[in-house]
Design a protein around this nucleic acid. Structure first.
Length: 536
RNA sequence: GGCCCGUUCGUCUAUCGGUUAGGACACCAGGUUUUCAACCUGGUAAGAGGGGUUCGACUCCCCUACGGGCUGCCA
């Protein structure tokens, strides 16, 4: 049956359902763009920012219920974590994919906090998620939407479904349902709950709390056209009448997701494949409301190095831990993007490249394992490719995240001067700081055991010989190399024999940049002072 | 239990019926070398198993095994 429909570029007349649902603030667009006349509880109380954007969203809202339409509209993706803990590394990758897809197509990337579970949601977790995304460099459009704030709109849709006959009131208590499942299990039957209230006469309704359940079709099948998994068919008799509105009037995830994705104009739902089955039931809500079904893309989960589901025993699962371990955000983005997605043989790439290359068709179907070695390798390449000033900023953020002491002004200067010989040899900021020690420390240079050993009496003697020659030498690399080679040669030694003690004197440890680079960075005065300090 | 998804070198992956199955990380050997790192050269290493379809299958279909997910008034 043909339905009147607006295209993305025209007008103002809302479709039938929009008119029906326009009684509450929920029918407005979410992303905080409107001043809302509906009072303090309305989500849209936030300040308007880009009126232009909301215009566009309104237009998008006015398309009809044809599943194919979503793909034709300007891309809108979202990341919708539940704030029950830190930002999981797998969630971070999901966010990244959504971000990449939207940003690569001039679309919008939205953020929604799925906090309808009041027991488990915490503001701390929300803050941690926002921090994590910010660190990763995934900027979202508009303000983060609180799903809980939209509960009135969810309830409104549930009532609309009731009015349409696609949902019903169910008075079964949780005890009754549990007993039903218990019995079903015992008899080996399906535990899917079949509510006795599905076709009940309203005259028989008790005066008791009820939930609103979806009246899901029992025959036929629901096909999910998934951009990653292909066509996935699920028999409708495998699905039960899911609860949309709890007995306390709050929405369930299954309803809220659909309502919010629809209202936010989400065109592409890219999420973990643990939601693949859910997509079928969610499709039923879209159909019931005659809304556009978004393009689905269910991506495989990330597993630990042992191939098992990622959990705390694998070590770092929270994104912020990676920052504290000294991985640069650019390397993290590169690695995460490459995990489960590919663009031919490209391994090392910038976020700009990733944005232009990213496509749903490049996403793999098998779960991927975390490989820290590869992460490190990529991070090393990104550190080497980042300019010095940007690195300094990132390092300072790393120090704060790792709860390590901040850099003093002189340390910042020293680090910047030494950066050229540091950035090519560090895979993480931990390594970089370790190697930068010579430029960050003051005299007297504290020496570790290995350095102590390198400075035996003979070596100290040679260093003492070296000092006077350095006094008058022109301070460039070639000259320095020549002088040191001469001194070593005079003792019948190779450069290696003298570089050890020199390194110990200058850096106090055995891991550092080349001795010549250190001398160049430190300058004549400081170099000689450190040599004297080691000789004495 | 039922349903859904997956399975190419140790790891991430390329391949989209015809390739000596390619690349990257890791690993091994050699080179360079003042430590660490980087770098150069070379090497080991893969289509889970079994049936089909086809002139031809890693690629399409079925079965099995293994892994994962869903099966909540969690998300």
């Amino acid at each position: 049956m043909p339905r009147p429909r607006q295209t993305g570029t025209q007008g103002s007349s809302a479709p039938r359902w929009a008119a029906r649902l326009s009684s509450g603030c929920g029918s407005r667009i979410i992303p905080s763009s409107h001043p809302c006349p509906h009072g303090p509880d309305c989500l849209d109380k936030r300040q308007a920012n880009t009126a232009q954007v909301s215009e566009r969203l309104i237009v998008m809202l006015s398309t009809g219920g044809d599943p194919s339409r979503a793909a034709d509209r300007p891309v809108v993706t979202r990341f919708a974590p539940s704030p029950t803990g830190y930002l999981h590394i797998g969630g971070a990758r999901t966010a990244l994919f959504n971000w990449l897809y939207a940003r690569g197509r001039g679309g919008r990337f939205l953020l929604r906090i799925e906090d309808t579970d009041r027991e488990r949601s915490t503001p701390e977790a929300t803050a941690a998620i926002l921090r994590g995304l910010t660190w990763l460099g995934l900027d979202w459009d508009g303000e983060a939407v609180s799903q809980f704030d939209r509960k009135d709109r969810h309830a409104e849709v549930a009532r609309a479904m009731l009015a349409r006959g696609s949902a019903y009131k169910c008075f079964s208590t949780q005890e009754e349902i549990e007993a039903y499942r218990e019995a079903a299990r015992a008899e080996g039957r399906s535990t899917l709950f079949h509510s006795p209230w599905r076709e009940a006469d309203p005259a028989t309704f008790p005066d008791a709390p009820y939930v609103i359940r979806m009246k899901a079709p029992r025959d036929g099948e629901t096909v999910i056209q998934d951009a990653v998994q292909g066509a996935v068919t699920i028999r409708n008799d495998q699905l039960d009448d899911m609860v949309c509105l709890r007995s306390d009037g709050t929405p369930t995830y299954m309803l809220a997701v659909v309502v919010d994705d629809h209202d936010m104009g989400v065109t592409h739902v890219i999420r973990g494949d643990d939601h693949l089955n859910n997509a079928a039931r969610q499709t039923m809500v879209y159909r019931a409301m005659e809304w556009d079904v978004p393009v689905w893309a269910h991506i495989p989960l990330i597993h630990g190095p042992d191939g098992k589901k990622l959990s705390k025993r694998h070590g770092a699962v929270g994104l912020e831990e990676y920052q504290a371990m000294g991985y640069p955000a650019a390397g993290m983005r590169n690695y995460l993007a490459r995990l489960g997605w590919s663009h031919g043989d490209d391994e090392f790439f910038s976020s700009e490249q990733a944005k232009s290359w990213f496509d749903l068709s490049g996403i793999g179907r098998a779960p991927a394992r975390l490989d820290f070695k590869k992460l490190e390798n990529l991070c090393g390449q990104h550190i080497a490719a980042t300019d010095d000033a940007a690195l300094l900023h990132e390092i300072e953020a790393y120090l704060a995240a790792a709860e390590r002491p901040a850099l003093s002004g002189t340390q910042q200067d020293g680090l910047l001067r030494a950066m050229y010989c540091l950035k090519d040899r560090a895979k993480t900021f931990v390594e970089l700081i370790e190697k930068a020690h010579f430029a960050l420390t003051d005299r007297p240079v504290l020496r570790d055991e290995a350095a102590q050993r390198a400075l035996d009496p003979v070596s100290r003697g040679i260093l003492a010989e070296l000092t006077p020659q350095l006094q008058s030498a022109s301070w460039d690399r070639d000259r320095l190399e020549a002088i040191i080679a001469d001194v070593a040669g005079a003792h019948g030694l190779g450069l290696g024999k003298i570089a050890g003690p020199l390194r110990a004197a200058l850096a106090g440890r055995s891991v550092s940049p080349s001795v010549f680079d250190m001398m160049l960075v430190l300058g004549r005065e400081e170099t000689i002072a450190r040599l004297n300090g080691a000789a004495g």
